[in-house]
Design a protein around this nucleic acid. Sequence first.
DNA 1: GTCTATACGAAGATAGAC
DNA 2: GTCTATCTTCGTATAGAC
Lengths: 195, 195
Amino acid sequence: MPVPTRTRILDAAWDLFLREGFAGTTVTQIEASAGLSAGSGSFYRHFRSKGEVLQAVVDREVDRANAERQTGPEPEETGGDVRAALAVEFERRLGNLRRLHPLMELVARERDHLGASVDHLDELLVARNVSIRSQRLAGLMAAGAIPARDAEALAAVITFALTGYHLSVRFFGHQPAGVGEEALITTLVDLVAGA
Amino acid sequence: MPVPTRTRILDAAWDLFLREGFAGTTVTQIEASAGLSAGSGSFYRHFRSKGEVLQAVVDREVDRANAERQTGPEPEETGGDVRAALAVEFERRLGNLRRLHPLMELVARERDHLGASVDHLDELLVARNVSIRSQRLAGLMAAGAIPARDAEALAAVITFALTGYHLSVRFFGHQPAGVGEEALITTLVDLVAGA
DNA sequence: GTCTATACGAAGATAGAC
DNA sequence: GTCTATCTTCGTATAGAC
């Protein structure tokens, strides 16, 4: 079954916007990469402008990310070992960030051309994350498994420590001061669990 | 004493690049904003290309940031109150991030057009920060003022928690899940000092 | 719905007078 | 060193045939 032209355009645009940026990508390039004749206006039979396809591309990726999140693996109960459970959760979060990275980069770079999609990224990266995490942490505190603190603030510290670490590694292309993923997570677990 | 044209061009370009981005800024705009005739090539008597002026602008701002850092206030000894000293240091870091933000944003957006300047930002934002902080923390651990941990990893957690929080607030335009600066710092101090 | 062809405008960069 | 004028290239978008 053939891939519709509209979809091929979205695929091509997603790829090109990531590599060349929005301003650096021409409609002609998109057409060529989508199997249309370069320089023909065939693109415009499917989208009114280059900006419109950017919106559509980002929305599609946000929807994909949300869909994948639904089908993700549930946090297995590790038999009361809080430290192990936290470590697994933090590792999973770093993995999620790696998968989300292309979308993060595109939205960050082209936020001026995007509208409400920025809020969707907020939800995806920060809001929901802090919210869910703080509820879990509050549960652990109530059970006496970890020291009692401001659960929301603690969730924020964790979220931003992981996100910041990820961004730094990706952006600068190396681990900061030789601190690897394992050392970061171990220390973060120690802090939260009160080693 | 008159401002040299080269400097006026740098000022104008810095301003325009921040507001409109590199691709969104035209040489004609820079000329007009620098007091030159719009559309004349007078710009090219001072820089070979638009890309060259971007490099020059970023280098100037990095140098400025480094110079200001030298003359910054020294961390006052707070009479053995480790928690207060940590809080002051974290607040100061958030202030530094606010001042550095325009430069961060520009370099992040235009990194493709920049060369070694990206490494200078790494030094400014991450490398030196983690390095200095880990040394101080190691000193506090040796003195028994805070619990002993992996000093470098702890420094990384602190640096990225603060940087990530700052970025989130700036990028999304609001505090995450109602966690304010004060709550974040208090919780971070509690974690480090072992409350 | 895709093609060829092209209008239209914008922007980087240069030539030569003053 | 700045100006007027212009060259040239490129990119968005449209017109009309098939």
